[in-house]
Amino acid sequence: MRDGVEITSRKSGDFDWLGIAGEVDMHASPQVRKALLDALQPKSALLVDLSAVRYMDSSGVACLVEAFQTARKQGSRFALVAVAQPVLNVLRLARLDKVFTLYASLDEALAGGG
């Protein structure tokens, strides 16, 4: 786990999946930002699994917001999956839980069309 964060990705027919684990802070956020933006493809869906994120600061939240805005501009779908409680608390505090599409599980996301 480099910089306190580990990122894995997987491609499927209908969506791309990005899993983030560890702590997303100002040291790890450049790596997370690059992974998010690299994973975004026009007219596709990106599901970001945050179930293993133990901590996220404002720089991590900014990465998610930038990826969300980029996805909207290119006509892609962007959703957060299985958001860990510490991250969900931060998103709620910033009222971003009302902005992002949130799914409790990957199965729910797939049923919801990514």
Score class of each variant (00 low, 15 high):
36 L>C: 08
38 D>H: 01
103 Y>I: 14
22 G>M: 01
49 D>K: 06
51 S>Y: 13
104 A>S: 09
56 M>K: 01
40 L>R: 11
28 A>F: 03
20 I>P: 13
113 G>W: 08
99 V>D: 04
45 A>C: 14
76 S>K: 02
43 K>M: 14
17 W>L: 15
15 F>C: 09
38 D>I: 06
89 N>F: 03
11 K>L: 11
59 S>Y: 08
61 V>W: 08
78 F>Y: 02
16 D>K: 15
67 A>S: 10
14 D>A: 11
8 T>P: 08
94 A>V: 08
87 V>N: 06
48 V>G: 07
4 G>S: 06
14 D>Q: 12
21 A>T: 12
59 S>A: 11
112 G>P: 05
108 E>V: 13
101 T>M: 07
4 G>F: 11
36 L>K: 01
46 L>E: 01
53 V>D: 09
95 R>C: 13
79 A>L: 09
112 G>Y: 04
49 D>A: 04
74 Q>Y: 00
55 Y>K: 07
5 V>K: 10
55 Y>P: 02
12 S>L: 06
47 L>W: 02
91 L>I: 05
64 L>P: 04
17 W>I: 03
23 E>G: 12
103 Y>T: 11
61 V>N: 08
98 K>T: 14
75 G>H: 08
27 H>M: 14
69 Q>I: 00
35 A>Y: 10
81 V>M: 07
86 P>N: 00
15 F>Y: 14
23 E>I: 15
33 R>Q: 07
4 G>C: 04
68 F>S: 06
114 G>E: 12
99 V>S: 03
